[in-house]
Design a protein around this nucleic acid. Structure first.
Length: 581
DNA sequence: GCCGTTTTCGGCCCGACTGTTTTCAGTCG
């Protein structure tokens, strides 16, 4: 077993033990061990062969033995037994918001429920409410949660789906007879979540390619295996999670490739509009070609298709029928930002709060990515659970930053804070301390159940505060896990514009908040956007790439994004803001 | 199950919130 597969197995044991009612400290040890293992950057095979797995911090004698066994045999009796004792449907119940291990244990043991469907039926019959510790409200909340899961379906986050899609694509590209191959669909458009993987390739000899596709190591199940289209269920461990997705492969002759690429990239709405445009010009567009009366319009690339229809090339991220065709016609498409435009980041954490690396380690990692500046934005004092900084901690951190800036070359650390927006909309320190920061990221972490009116007023008040530089994760959503708090984002955008504040695209792939639709609105209102990784470890700094995807989907150019500016320009602007306070 | 220049036993980020209770359990971040 690979390191990541073992980490996933430990994660699974931890979860299964939770459902059996094990001590939370013991189950936490499995989850911690899994994370420690997956983040280990040295040579894992060497650790296995020399029996030194226990040297990883967070892995003790017991876990080391289990890891060793999994690495050598791929099996562990403990895991096999746990899996046999707890049905997958019971584990799935954990995904219902508001339902944790204790509730699942009661539902599965006392009511003998084994699937979400059975749970739904039990709620509708009213039997759940009669269970000790449960009640009418809990029962209603569970039903609501199940409905939420239903609307989410089996979607998978971009950062988890992409590695699986790319793994399949790379293997296909190596096969003999493949001329061109690309990911299509929502993965190519870089949507936040995806429900299947679409792959297109061109070849003159599809049969052997199809046969190879349905026997790739990631294949769990073959759904269809034809000449031009095959479907599989594919699985891969990504970031300690087992990702399962449908994957479709379509093979076309190379002369059809650009048309099929455009067709299967979508979106559907974009395609409908483009086909209509073709009809208006006396042409007909489908996945096999662009045809006029008795003639084919030859196209070698997608750009040729757009050109034939009188349009500039439209990047996949913009193909949502939100005005891109009109803009392409007028040659007014944005020159989209790329990850190379970023010169620094502002919202990151260190061991001062809930990050897992020191300030210096984080700053050096930022330098390695080519950044000129690294802004720290640890949590503020009231967020105790995340190790929020007391005023004394702030002073200590600032002294360390001064010392590091004197010592380090090629990277400047900026003194920021992620200040909680308190329930009444005020910030989390008094003005004297707030003045000691170069900038303030204001974010909501508590009181998610407020009404939309209250939450909107709360955030708008924080935006009116002179110390606030930018708004962090605007809705607090966690993709496929938790809806954001209720807030009127249009009012928030108005307040940001009025007070000259920036808004963050939180690039962490579980958030991607502000979403691309509101990013586009923010751009139209002249609000500067900041792309922040919200990194809690050095490796997470690279997550900015997912923020770039959102920015591109929101039509942003480099000029619209504050952290494309040089260190000198950034300092000048931050100082200007402080001077105006 | 992990960890330790105060500990090899006894802790383990901890407080808010909700819904169930009548003093607390479960969930969340």
């Amino acid at each position: 077993m690979t390191k990541d597969e073992i980490a996933a197995a430990l994660e699974e044991i931890g979860t299964l033990l939770e459902l059996k009612g094990e001590s939370s400290f013991r189950t936490l040890a499995y989850h911690n061990g899994a994370r420690a293992l997956s983040q280990y950057e040295g040579d894992f095979q060497e650790l296995v062969s020399t029996g030194k797995i226990g040297e990883i911090r967070g892995v003790g004698a017991s876990l080391a033995e289990k890891i060793q066994q999994l690495a050598e045999t791929g099996e562990l009796p403990q895991l096999t037994e746990l899996r046999a004792a707890i049905p997958p449907g019971v584990i799935a119940m954990l995904k219902i918001p508001g339902v944790g291990p204790k509730k699942v244990k009661a539902l599965s043991e006392d009511l003998k429920l084994t699937t979400i469907d059975e749970l739904k039926a039990a709620c509708e019959a009213g039997t759940v409410a009669k269970l000790k510790g449960f009640g009418a409200k809990t029962q209603a909340k569970i039903l609501e949660g199940i409905q939420f899961l239903g609307t989410v379906g089996q979607r998978v986050r971009l950062d988890l789906a992409l590695p699986l899609g790319e793994a399949l694509l790379e293997q296909l590209k190596k096969l003999p007879g493949v001329i061109r191959a690309e990911l299509c669909g929502s993965l190519r458009r870089r949507r936040e979540t995806t429900k299947d993987i679409d792959i297109l390739l061109s070849s003159d000899n599809p049969k052997p390619i199809m046969d190879a596709f349905v026997t790739l190591p990631e294949v769990m199940q073959v759904v269809a295996n034809g000449e031009t289209k095959s479907s599989i269920v594919a699985a891969m461990v990504v970031d300690r999670e087992k990702i399962v997705l449908n994957a479709d492969l379509r093979v076309v002759g190379d002369e059809h490739f650009p048309f099929a690429l455009h067709y299967f990239t979508g979106s559907k709405d974009h395609n409908v509009r483009l086909r209509q445009r073709a009809i208006d010009q006396g042409l007909s567009l489908n996945e096999y070609g662009l045809k006029g009366e008795g003639r084919d319009v030859k196209c070698k690339t997608e750009a040729d298709i757009f050109a034939a229809l009188g349009l500039d090339y439209i990047p996949p991220e913009l193909r949502e029928d939100t005005g891109e065709i009109e803009a392409a016609e007028k040659k007014k498409l944005p020159k989209l930002i790329t990850v190379k435009n970023l010169r620094g980041v502002f919202h990151n954490h260190s061991t001062y709060s809930d990050g897992n690396a020191s300030l210096e380690e984080m700053a050096l990692a930022a330098k390695k990515l080519g950044f000129e500046y690294f802004g720290i934005g640890d949590h503020s004092q009231s967020l105790k659970i995340a190790g929020g900084l007391s005023p004394a901690d702030v002073k200590k951190q600032h002294r360390e930053i001064d010392e590091l800036n004197a010592r380090l070359d090629g990277i400047q650390i900026l003194k920021g804070i992620e200040s909680d927006i308190l329930d009444d909309g005020s910030l989390d320190y008094d003005d004297d301390i707030l003045r000691s920061f170069d900038y303030v990221v204001a974010s909501v972490h508590t009181g998610f159940n407020m009404s939309s009116e209250e939450m909107t007023a709360r955030i708008c008040k924080a935006l009116a505060h002179q110390a606030t530089t930018m708004l962090g994760h605007a809705t607090g959503r966690l993709l496929l896990r938790r809806e954001g708090y209720k807030v009127d984002l249009d009012q928030v955008l108005k307040a940001a514009a009025k007070h000259g504040k920036m808004i963050e695209i939180n690039a962490h792939p579980i958030r991607l908040d502000l979403d691309w639709i509101h990013v586009k609105r923010a751009k139209a209102m002249g609000i500067p956007i900041v792309i922040n990784p919200d990194a809690h470890s050095p490796g997470e700094l690279a997550l900015v790439e997912f923020g770039i995807d959102v920015a591109r989907r929101g039509w942003l150019e480099a000029d619209n994004v504050f952290n494309t500016k040089s260190l000198a320009e950034v300092l000048k602007e931050l100082n200007r803001r402080k001077a105006a306070w």
